[in-house]
Each structure stands twice: as C-alpha cells, then as structure tokens.
Design a protein around this nucleic acid. Sequence first.
RNA 1: GAGAAUGUAGCUCAGCCGGUAGAGCAACGGACUUUUAAUCCGUGGGUCGCGGGUUCGAUCCCCGCCAUUCUCACCA
Length: 495
Amino acid sequence: MEPTHEMAELLRARQEKLEALRKLGVEPYPYSFPRTHFAADVIRRFEELEASKEVLALAGRIMTIRVMGKAAFAHIQDSSGRIQIYVKLDLVGERGFEIFKHLDLGDIIGVKGPAFRTRTGEISIHADEFQLLSKSMRPLPVVKEKDGQVFDAFSDKEARYRQRYLDLVVNPEVRRVFETRARILTVMRQFLDEWGFLEVETPILQPLYGGAAAEPFVTHHNTLERDLYLRIADELYLKRLIVGGYDRVYEIGKDFRNEGMDRFHNPEFTQLELYAAYEDYTFCMAFVEGVMARIATELTGSTKLTYQGKEYDLAPPWPRYRFFDLLNEAVGTDLRALSDDELNREVKAAGLKLEIGEVGRGKMLDKLFGARVEPKLAGPCFVLDYPKELSPLAKGHRSDPGLVERFEGFLAGREFCNSFSELNDPADQRARFEDQGKLRAAGDREAQPLDEDFLMALEIGMPPTAGLGMGIDRLTMFYTDQHSIRDVLLFPQMR
RNA sequence: GAGAAUGUAGCUCAGCCGGUAGAGCAACGGACUUUUAAUCCGUGGGUCGCGGGUUCGAUCCCCGCCAUUCUCACCA
C-alpha cells in the first residue's frame, strides 16, 4: 500500500535523525549493553540505591520525552515497568545533549547513573551517560496517562491483534495477561511433575486423525505424496504410550480444528492431555480440583477467582451432577425412555434443529444439554456419566450400560475439560469405531475414522486408564478475566 | 451462517440538512537546566475502507464488496 504523505513525512523525519546521528558518530544498532537493574528493582529498592549512590545501568524503550532547552526528562520502559530518566546538558555534554535531541519515542536506549528523587518526588535515574541501542524508524501509538487515567489508549482491536508487538509495548496489562498464561503453565507442569507425570511430544502431522469429534485441517506431504492431517487431539497417541508401559504421561500442545471462530474458539488452540494407568475418571476429578485450586492459589493467594464480574471458589470438592439428572430435570421428562422420534420432538420443542451432518441420538441429547443445561452451570462443577453414543473412546459405565464413565468440568457456564475412564477393551473399541463409521456414512462429518493401528495397540493390551483433556486457553481466560480467547492468544487467527 | 454496529491524519476521535474535512496527541521549526497528559509561539500533514450508482455536486443518500467489533447459531 502506498504510504500517505503524512506517513512518508513521519518516516522521513526518523530517517533524517538516523542519518544525523550517524554524522555525530553514533552507531544506531550496537551489539549489547550490560545492564545491572530493571526499572522495578530501582523503584522497589530505592532508599538503599539512593543512599549508596551506586551507578545503575538500565535499558529500555523511550515512552515519553519532555525536552526543556538544556535538560530533559523521559520515561524508559523495560520488561519490569517504567522509570523516569533525567538528562541534562551539564552532565552529558554538548554532543550528548545534541544526540539526545535526535531521539524519538520508541527508541531503545541504555542509561547509566545514580537513582534520585525529583523535586516532585518521582524516583528517577540521573543520567551520567546514555547510549542509543536501537533506533525506532516508525511512530508508536502515543498513549498518555495522568493519575492512572489513560488518554488516547491504543484500543483498536484489529490493530492490536494484528500488530501485537505494538499492543504489548503500549498496553502493559496485555503483557501481564501473557505473563500469567506462562505462570499457569509453569504451575501446571509443577503439579503434573508432583503427580508423577512424564511430559511427552506426539505427532502434530498425522496420517489419520482422531480422539475428538471435529473436522481436521488437511495438508500435503510432497515427498510422501500423501495428505496428512493436523491433529485434532493427542489422545490416540498418548494411549499408545500407556500401552507401551508409561504409567502417567501428558502433553501440552496445539490442536487444530477446522471450525467456526468466536470468542471461545480459535482454529488452533492449546490443550493439556494426560493419561494415568490403573486409574479411572474419579482420579481425573481429583486432579482437576487440585490443579485448578493450586493455580488460583499461586496466582491470587486464594482459591477464588473473579470472571466477568462473578466470583467462583475453586476449593475442592466440586459438586458432581449426573448428565441425565440435569437434563431430565431441565426438560421435564425422562429422556432415556423416549424413542428417537420422540427425542427429536423434544429437540424441536426446545426451538433447536439439527444441522445437516448432525445425526444420531447422541447429537440430539448433546444439543439439548447445551441449550437447556450448560448456561445454568455456574460452576465449578462436574457433569458426569454421559450417553454412550457421544463418547466412542470412553469405557462403559460400571453400573449403567447405556452410559460411559465420563465427566466434563464447568466454570462460568463453560466447559473447560473433558475426561473419561478410557475404553481398553479392543473389541468394544472396534464396535464403537464401526458405529462412528455408520454416523459418518449418514453424514456426520465429525464422526471419527477407524484407526487400525490404535486398535492393534489396544489388542496388545492397555491397563485400565484415566484420561483428561483441558483447554489451556479457556483456563487462561478464567484466570486473567478476559472476555475473548483472542485476548489470551498472542497472535489470534485473523481473516 | 444470521443480525446489528463500525471503518475519516501515525494514535484517539469530531464532522449539521449533500456544497470535496476538523480537534487533541504525535511530527517539524523556535523558546525553556527538576518536568511529568510539561508549557508557550509557529508550520506541515487526508484517495474520508474499496468499487459502482443517484446528483450540478457524495465523508454524508442507495447498491455491492472487503475488514473489524458485538450478539446469536455452529463448535461434545
């Protein structure tokens, strides 16, 4: 795109300054700068640092500049925060001050000098010297602030997502969200470690996909001359590892689902999947309660979190509700006693309709549940014992043959995890795959393909196993109180 | 997929009943050696998302397209 005249002018001004700096003998892109302190350190340890008159070395991006003839103030921002610097002609010299006047908002500089407090009381660095570390060649959004009030915030969501680097530079609360996201993952890994889990990595490019009900992305390998799928779940590979003899494995990684996007869905998203041998789904409930409470405690000091204005307490134990208890109560009939046709009438009565490709009892029940029950599940809670048709990889319920031992965790009316006692009877698993094949033939594009190699692994023998999948993006939304999944993804999918 | 809203300067936004655009910040020049949304004086900066149409004339009205945001649907 052609730059506007104004943009060209702004770029030219920066270019001219760059050239002027080179003429002054300044290298605009040097190699390193030995810093000794971060902005936040100086502010935290100010009394001590001021008393010692120690020369501090800080580096960061210039976020404000106020030049007053022969002295100047600026704020530099590093990863820890901002600090003011004071530059005056007497100290940095004629040439130094001339160089300073050629600096712009967005330039990255290093500063050396002692900490002091200005007349108005702001902790600052008294710059004995400074050094340009990287010249910024484009204007930054200019955000001003006074008494905690922000002016002209860089708020255009499209621009923020597409140019996340600008968003991160200019909106510190955005940086904090992603720091928290990293913290969640760290705590989660610690917790998994304590529980004896081994972290593994399984293929993202798969010759056959499975492990979830979703449409995959298809790609092509040129040398192999065959199509490959981007995984929709890790499940079938991780269970092969349980067959292989690992007791507890987990993977945290990206899954890809070729579906619509909204504030809870991005085509690529991060999931934790874990599998534990010799356990059933009650183990996973304990795990979820434990890890969720631990993360909350690490982040906030309590088991409580606030999401979109409502408070939730994650302290275990969470209430457990059975799928059909909730659904029958919401609809007012015993749905399990109904024929397929009668069930279909209930779906229609609820103002729902099945889309093309949505076939079978399972889908109808699921749809009803999603419409009638889910929105009311404030949580945290578990919904357990789902209809068999919905869960082709889950083991039948030990006391009710029409159900499987499966639960989903809910928080703020949203599902955030899914778990079951894993099906390890190879004959049963084959039969379930065949049922999926029928659904597929009837037009269900999300029905799972039969995986012979996975069946062979089960025939070799898998111990009783519990499995769990947990959406990391949604968790991050809850813990950071973000409205949209895009706000917890550094680079969300854009059209 | 449906509906609603939005798209004007680098950023944030005004723009009347149709007469081809304004502000603040940023930029540029000048003054200012403890300022902090620094201040003061001055200057420049626009294919009004894109393409059609109506009109003597369109940022404004109409149609189409693109993008975004929100809501709903879909997504176990």
